[in-house]
């Protein structure tokens, strides 16, 4: 337990030490969202900025007025998700690209130069793409199963006799199970990435297999490590939502700042997971190396048997 805490603390220290990564990810996340919402903003300005009706959205949040706005052809809300998808894809690729640079930073004891950082990023990018494809192969059946389970629990709510809560508990259990499975999957692939960076592994199938053995043989300690940070991320989200519901509707700027803090916290906690996994892997590698060294130094029992006394 104390060793685990040490890993968490060391992970947090490394994230703090290289906090420019957190800020960069946050700023790019923010910038992409800002840019993709510009067209929407421009359309909304046309509809609402000179309208007294918009006061219904300023003071509080009138769902009726908002519904009317979303169906206003001039606001063209129907195209918002299309516009947003680009930001989502770009941020995904950006995060994928940075992963090895981030891991290399958390591994090294000194500050990487920009060149070193991006060299690390570039060196592993295509490997990560292959890893994502592998992940998709594993993810699709999980998603299908989860969808089926959710649909089933939904049908229990709507169709099955018995206590009404049963279906909802089943739904909650399905969501929790899915979350645990997804977290385990992420942990496995995280370890694969850590191993690939530290070992300079090129073959992703091999690193996945090794990471699977490593993760499964140390599942409880690794999952506990990952889970505690996730829990803090969710608590941050819950706190943010609680604050959001208590901020008067007209103070949307303050609500926005609270939401941004939550999003920053989410990036921070995700990187904390990455850094802690790196620390865990390094310490394990040291332990294994030390154990190997001891095994190599101690004569084997077989060699001792029948050997002449040394005195």
């Amino acid at each position: 337990m104390s060793e685990q805490s040490g890993v968490l603390q060391e992970g947090a220290r490394r994230v703090w030490k290289s906090q420019r990564i957190v800020w960069w990810l946050f700023l790019v996340n923010l910038l992409l969202a800002f840019l993709t919402t510009r067209p929407l903003s421009a359309r909304l300005e046309q509809v609402t900025d000179h309208s007294l009706q918009s006061q219904r959205l300023v003071n509080g949040f009138d769902l009726g007025a908002y519904s009317e706005l979303t169906t206003n052809p001039d606001a063209a809300f129907s195209s918002v998700m299309g516009e947003s998808n680009l930001a989502i894809v770009v941020f995904f690729v950006f995060a994928l690209f940075l992963t090895s640079g981030i891991l290399a930073t958390y591994h090294s004891d000194y500050r990487l130069t920009t060149t070193q950082f991006f060299e690390a990023c570039g060196a592993f990018f295509l490997r990560w793409v292959r890893l994502v494809l592998f992940m998709a192969v594993v993810l699709i059946p999980i998603c299908v199963l989860s969808y089926k389970l959710l649909a089933w629990s939904g049908s229990v709510i709507l169709n099955k006799a018995g206590p009404e809560q049963t279906g909802y508990w089943l739904m909650l259990a399905t969501l929790l199970l899915t979350t645990v499975v997804m977290m385990s999957l992420r942990l496995w692939f995280d370890m694969a990435q850590v191993r690939a960076v530290l070992e300079g592994e090129r073959v992703m199938r091999r690193t996945l297999a090794q990471a699977f053995r490593l993760t499964s043989s140390n599942f409880s300690s690794l999952f506990w490590l990952y889970f505690r940070i996730s829990l803090l991320a969710w608590l941050g989200l819950a706190l943010g939502m609680w604050l959001w519901t208590h901020i008067p509707g007209q103070h949307s700027g303050l609500s926005f700042v609270v939401c941004e803090f939550v999003l920053l916290w989410w990036i921070g906690t995700r990187l904390w997971q990455r850094a802690s996994e790196m620390v865990w892997y390094e310490r394990r590698a040291l332990t294994v190396a030390a154990a190997t060294a001891v095994i190599e130094a101690v004569p084997s029992p077989e060699s001792s048997i029948g050997a002449p006394p040394t005195n």
Partner: peptide
């Protein structure tokens, strides 16, 4: 008065 458009845009952001 851009408060409404800003508010909705921020939520979407």
């Amino acid at each position: 008065d851009a408060r409404a458009s800003r508010k909705i845009t921020r939520y979407w952001m």
